[in-house]
Amino acid sequence: MNLLFVADPLESFKTYKDTTYTMMREAARRGHAIAACEPHDLRWQTGRPVAARVRPIHLTGQQDDWFTEEPAREAALKDFDAVLMRKDPPFDAEYLYATHLLQQAERDGARVFNSPQALRDHPEKLAIMEWPQFIGPTLVTRDAQAIRAFHAEHRDVILKPLDGMGGMGIFRVKDDALNLGSIIETLNQNGATSVMVQKFLPEIAAGDKRVLIIGGEPVPYCLARIPQGGEVRGNLAAGGKGVAQPLTDADRATATAIGKVLAPRGLLLIGLDIIGTRVTEINVTSPTCFREILDQTGCDVPGIFVDALERAVGG
C-alpha cells in the first residue's frame, strides 16, 4: 500500500513512545510506502482533487535520525491507498477545516482513517454522552451556577475543558470547594466556554486505563496510567506512570459494546479512557499507547492495527 500520514511535524516525534511512528514502522516492515504531511499542507481548488505537499520518507531504524526523505512533491490524496489522520488535538477551528478537506478528498475517492465525518461527530469529551450506562455523573455546561450545584451534590469533582489533551487544564475540587469560583472563571471564561464536570472517581489511584479498540475489537491489554506524587492526573504527559495490564472482563465488555457501534461509523481506531469501570473519554483523533503496551507485554498492537487497515482498504 501507499500510505499518507497527516500528522504533527515529523521532527517533533519521540520515537521511543510515539504511536504514529509505531504504525509507520510496522507498515514499512511489510513493504508499504510512507509519506507524511501536516494539516496546513492540505489544499483544494475548484476543478481539482484535494492535494497536499507530501514528504515521502524511509525509516532508518534509528531513534534520533529516524527517517530520510525524498524531495517533497504535490500529490492528490485519492492517489494514496489510505490516508491516516493522526494530528493531535486540540480540536480547534483549523482541525475542523482539515476534516472538511479530508471529507472532500473522500468524495474524490480517497480512503481516510479515521473517517473525517466520524471525527467531527465524536468529539472526545462529548462522545461519552451516547453511553450513559458506562459513565459516572457528568455535567456539560457554560452555567457557573449549574457547576456549583453539581459540586454541592457530589462534593468532590473534576473540571476540564472540552478541547484539552494530555491532562491539560484539569482541576479537582474537593468538599471544601476551595478555589471553585476561580477555577470556573478560568475554564468557562464568564460563560463563553463550555466545561465538563465529572464526579471524582477514587479508582484513579489504580490508574486511568487506556483501552484500545481496533476494527471494532478490543486489544487484549490496556495501559493503566497511574498518577504520581500529589497529582490527580494519570496522563503520561502529566507525569503518570504507564503500566500495561490485561483487560478486565468488565472493560472488555464495555469496549466490545462501544466498538461494535462506533467502528461501522468509520472509527477504525478508538481509545477509551476508563477509571474503575467508568468511561471518562472516547478518544478518536490520535489514540496512543501502542508502544508502551508492545514493550511491556509483547502484544503486537501495531501489527493488529495494520492488519485492520489492510482489511479495511482491501474490503
Rank of each mutant, 00 (worst) to 15 (best):
N2W: 11
L3D: 02
F5E: 08
D8A: 09
E11K: 15
S12Y: 03
S12L: 12
T15N: 09
K17Q: 14
K17Y: 01
T20G: 08
T22C: 13
T22K: 12
A33H: 13
A36T: 15
Q45S: 15
T46E: 14
G47Y: 10
P49Y: 00
R53E: 13
P56K: 07
I57E: 03
T60D: 05
Q62A: 13
Q62K: 15
Q63L: 15
D64S: 11
D65S: 14
R73C: 14
A75G: 04
L77F: 11
K78L: 11
D79A: 15
L84E: 02
M85A: 09
M85F: 14
R86F: 03
D88T: 08
P90I: 03
D92K: 09
A93Y: 12
A93H: 12
L96G: 11
L96W: 04
H100Y: 15
D108I: 08
N114G: 01
S115G: 05
A118K: 06
L119V: 05
D121C: 04
K125N: 03
I128H: 13
M129H: 13
P132D: 10
Q133S: 12
T138V: 11
T141Y: 01
A144I: 02
A144N: 07
A149P: 00
H151A: 08
E153S: 07
E153Q: 13
I158F: 09
L159Q: 03
P161G: 04
L162R: 04
L162E: 02
G166N: 12
G166H: 04
I170Q: 05
V173H: 02
V173Q: 02
D175R: 11
D175G: 08
L178G: 08
L180R: 09
S182P: 04
S194Q: 13
M196E: 06
M196G: 02
V197A: 12
Q198A: 10
P202A: 03
E203D: 14
A206T: 11
A206N: 10
D208V: 03
K209Y: 07
R210A: 04
G215I: 07
P218S: 07
L223S: 05
L223Y: 05
R225F: 01
I226Q: 09
P227K: 05
R233K: 09
N235Q: 03
G242L: 01
Q245N: 05
Q245I: 01
P246D: 08
L247F: 11
T248A: 00
A250C: 10
A250G: 07
R252L: 07
T254L: 06
A257G: 09
I258L: 14
I258A: 02
G259A: 09
V261E: 14
A263R: 05
L268W: 00
L268V: 01
L269K: 03
D273V: 03
G276R: 07
R278A: 15
V279A: 01
T285E: 04
P287A: 00
F290M: 13
R291T: 11
E292L: 06
I293G: 05
T297G: 05
G303E: 06
F305H: 02
F305N: 03
D307T: 12
L309D: 06
E310W: 01
A312Q: 09
V313S: 06
